[in-house]
Nucleic acid binder design. Sequence first.
DNA 1: AAGGCGTCCAACCGCCGTTGA
DNA 2: TTCAACGGCGGTTGGACGCCT
Length: 485
Amino acid sequence: MRKGHSDLSVVEEVGRRGNMREGCHLKKGPWTSAEDAILVDYVKKHGEGNWNAVQKHSGLSRCGKSCRLRWANHLRPDLKKGMFTPDEERRIVELHAKLGNKWARMAAELPGRTDNEIKNFWNTRIKRLQRAGLPIYPPDVCFQVNLSQEESLASMSNQDSFGSNLLQSDAFELPHVEFENLELNQQYLSYSPELLNIPPKTIGSSHGYGHLFPMACPPKHLQESVSNYISMPNQLTDFVCEENYDEPCKSSSPYDSDFSTNDRSSFGIPPGTDALLSSDFSPSEPLSGLMNMELPSYQYSDYQQDSWVNTSVPLPLVESVDSLIQSPPMKRAKSDTFTPQNSGLLEAVVYESRKLKSSKDESYQQSSTLMLDDGANFPLKDCKLEHEAHCDSNSPSAHSAASALSEHTPGSGSSSDEPQFVESILGIGCNSKNEMPNQMAISRLDDFLGPGQFGHDNGCTRDKPIVTDVIAALLGEDTCISSTF
DNA sequence: AAGGCGTCCAACCGCCGTTGA
DNA sequence: TTCAACGGCGGTTGGACGCCT
């Protein structure tokens, strides 16, 4: 019980809502110990459930809902009180990566914990990470989630020949990329946590999660060392390689040892998951302020469509990478690489005008990127619209996709969002190389468009050649880039 | 000491699915 | 089949508290 609430007000319940009857005088506000005792006594005698009867039989001036909530969150004998243990925290992160904001389901997996507790924990954690500009999922969690989801995806798609073929192939083959020259591990390890812009509380509180997260603005020398690796443009600025600074980064798995394959996960986005459908995400950008917190599992930041441009054109110059790296992320988000994603209408207009201008001025490669951009717009927009009419709103992916469509479109419907749309489908927003083998990308497109829609007879069929061209172009360049390393 | 600010968390709100009459 | 009651769930609110200046 909180202090200072002895003066509980008795309020007239409007009776319009829920199960409250009109005219009933029901208490609101904090519960007193006397009320608790009454409720406990009642439940002991009658068991849980039938909460509206509590008021009738026990004289409690509380609505059934309130009784249920009180019991479930505070009076249940099996409740575990106190701070979350490190294991529990980790479990919550994993579960959230898998389930999204399904607090009740998460609570079911954590004996003695309530959905409210977990929700509060998550929300404060999210806020903390947001402030620090950090991704919300640690790499290992992302990887685990990805693995499990890949497995379930594989089993689910047995009936779908298209998907099945993809999955039976090396759809999720992780390209082997080596970074012999990359001494990032060592370099990162040499940094003490205080170098990171992470509040000490964050670092310490999550037992390994806080300091695991990338920082928004790494130290200059780190940026410089990182900038040598143009394969990892700005993402690297945010990357902290492994869970513990005080231990060398171990290459316990391809995932762990390979930046190029794990960088998506490194930024808190489980690869091969709904996140790819729900939105583009940007590991290279902090999540600060712009992240949609509701996203199932794979919260995303709504910007960074430039990253796909970065990866779909030939390798950027080192200088440009440097400039990217050395630009404070938030500043960059509003600078010349900004997108209207989270901006106002005015910015969307400016973005459009710049895009138009650049289509005239830019070099072949740049313009080809824009062509990709625009080429992708067209068919996918059609498909998108058709899909919206067809998709099962109950399906998580459909929901995610719908979210992506709606939430990605500030001021609703700026076509400049379409590249992001494509990007989000293909999952190349954060890092186009390696992690997205061609077939996987197509598989995701198929997922997005609906089971079997892509590549089958459906409303999008007429656009398929264009779509595939776009994908091929993207992936071709992807492949090209990845093979460079 | 006091005010501002951020964090925590209990409780409420409103929507939705289920159930039973 | 319809409708109301109920219960579950996720989002949001607002007060207490602690830290900082």
